[in-house]
């Protein structure tokens, strides 16, 4: 966001003359800041899983990490269920889920909705890349 503001600030430094121009630049800076915020979107810690989905012509999975941590501590999925703590590192298939592995330990129509509700999990836009999303994620040389 700071990057979005900087150019107009620099411009202001060099070329502000009258108050009309100043107002224009101020509004531009404002718009710029708002625009950049509107661009970011996903809830912090939303996980996109698209290792196999697009290839099989179904929507990618959006896993809401924030939703699950309200109900389960990290250790339930990342210890008991054996999920690696790296998006895309788990070789999850529908076969394994139906066998009760990974998501299938709970998503079995008993604890949570079962596998016949495809589009509740496979709910993402086509073409999304596997990874963790969210508006406040580190923008650095991250691996997310």
């Amino acid at each position: 966001m700071i990057q979005g503001i900087m150019p107009s600030t620099m411009k202001a430094r060099n070329s502000i003359k009258g108050s009309g121009r100043r107002l224009l630049l101020i509004s531009l800076a404002g718009l710029c800041a708002t625009g950049f915020s509107a661009g970011v979107s996903a809830e912090y810690a939303d996980v996109v899983l698209n290792r196999l989905s697009d290839k099989n012509d179904v929507r990618p999975v959006i896993f809401p990490h924030w939703f699950h941590r309200i109900r389960f501590r990290c250790k339930v999925c990342h210890n008991e269920l054996g999920f690696e703590m790296r998006a895309g590192a788990n070789e999850i298939t529908m076969g394994k889920i139906i066998d009760g592995q990974y998501c299938g330990l709970c998503h079995n129509d008993e604890i949570a909705w079962g596998v016949d509700n495809c589009s509740l999990c496979h709910s993402g836009k086509h073409g999304l890349k596997t990874g963790i999303r969210g508006s406040n994620q580190t923008g650095g040389p991250g691996r997310w």
């Binding site: 503001i5 107009s8 600030t9 404002g30 708002t34 915020s37």
Partner: peptide
Amino acid sequence: LFIVAVWSALQA
């Protein structure tokens, strides 16, 4: 300008 820009960012 800087103050307004930061303020807009915070509002956003």
